[in-house]
Write a protein that binds this DNA or RNA. Sequence first.
RNA 1: GCGAGUGUAGCUUAGUGGUAAAGCCUCGGCCUUCCAAGCCGAUGACGAGAGUUCGAUCCUCUUCACUCGCUCCA
Length: 493
Amino acid sequence: MAKQTKQDPMDKIMSLCKRRGFIFQSSEIYGGMNSCWDYGPLGVELKRNIKNFWWHNMITSRNNVVGMDAGIMMHPKVWEASGHVANFNDPLVDCKDCKTRFREDKAPHKFKCSKCVMKFEVDNGRITGKSKYTNEFESLVANEPASYIGSTCPRCKNEGAIELEGIVCPNCGGTNLTEAKNFNLMFKTHYGPAEDTASQIYLRPETAQGIFVNFANVENTSRLKIPFGIGQIGKAFRNEITTGNFIFRSREFEQMEMEFFIHPDGNKGWYEYWINERFEFYKLLGIKEENLRLRAHGQDELAHYARGCTDVEYKFYFGWSELEGIADRQTFDLDQHIKASGKNLSYFDADTNTHIVPAVIETSAGVDRTLLTVLSDAYWEDDENERIVLSLHPRIAPTKVAVFPLVNKDGMPEIAEKINNDLRKYMATFYDKAGSIGRRYRRQDEAGTPFGITVDSQTLEDGTVTLRDRDTLEQVRLPQDKILATLLEKVNS
RNA sequence: GCGAGUGUAGCUUAGUGGUAAAGCCUCGGCCUUCCAAGCCGAUGACGAGAGUUCGAUCCUCUUCACUCGCUCCA
């Protein structure tokens, strides 16, 4: 643990996560695994609560969205059709002079003619250095720089004379570069116990393709008519080049994705609709609105098939970062699978009596990122009362209520234990009789438990208990038979 | 993967070429009638491996992990 960065709020959250059993580093007793994380007793409850809330909000509570659960391992052709085999391969180059790393295909390329003195440079789709001949290259400009190789020289007109002279560092302009190294972002594995004969497959880099390849199955069996959606929560794997910021970017992560199938003509309103719905979701999780924003992608950021993409971003300690992308993907995904599989994945529109390929609005969120958001947003230090508090929304708090006897005598523990056992049938509870009452409250504040029930001497007289609020520290007295109803209302509100 | 930095109990810090100290936390006990009180006791660490050395937590090398950049995304 780096000592000089201990003041960083993220370090405090990491420390709390470990101290209270939210998140541990993977394989810690063997020295740890780079950017792999394990969820402890409180973390798994929090994570599950987030996923359950998403599932309810996106699927169960809607009559036009259904869920599914596809396997992590799929036919290798899925990833050829989806474009991942081609696009998840980044050729990366390091500049030995300024230590910058960049994508080879996006760096300036220098070309020359093998027959004459013609030389020119291509950077970001633009030809520089020889403006006189720019028009001659117009048809090539839209293509990858590599495709310039072997074209006809515009100066001496020799066919196939253009060759690549070299690549230039986009940062310092130097040419002292390493060989391009291919980075495949998909995890490969063998499907079958005998490695040499087993087929090579991939761990899915996103859950979305499991939905697309099952589009016809779900459409045929669910009796849904477009517009309708299919949602899924599950693990995905990417060999990210750079991981970090705690659980923000890791190689194994969990997604909550929903593909909403609409008529390819019109229905533009659905894109806006889902942007709003998804933004509201984070507010319902208790995230402060001033820390959330929507950011529409510029034209240069969009994939070629996407008509629009908007990110939900959260203001982390390390800056604004993406939690979720809402994308108008048009008919790209189903078109690709129709092409690659040869199967009919079209939808029969009874109104117009025609077959159509539905367009798709995708909402793709990260579970772990949402969890980090929830923790970051809930964490605060109450200097006045010398405590650290996680003000988690009661809906997602790992423990809903803690039950205490004020002191360990006069029958208080027995009463408190009975209250705890009764409540546990309905919600996650925690019983604690060790140490002073103040210490027990503090422990629960750090765990994000929103409510505390305490049995005191007045309970022995009139049967009432105190209900403490984590955030305001206020206490009210309640008759024992009102505890459950009061808590259920607060937790589900 | 490249460059720079860091690594001593769960946390925060001492310290030394002769295997290490403290506070907080945790656990047990006493005491405690509403917000980390007190007393007694207990658990617990030199990231891992190799080398130099009579002896390494300290010196050297390797490795692992973390932090900050570069590139990518949920």
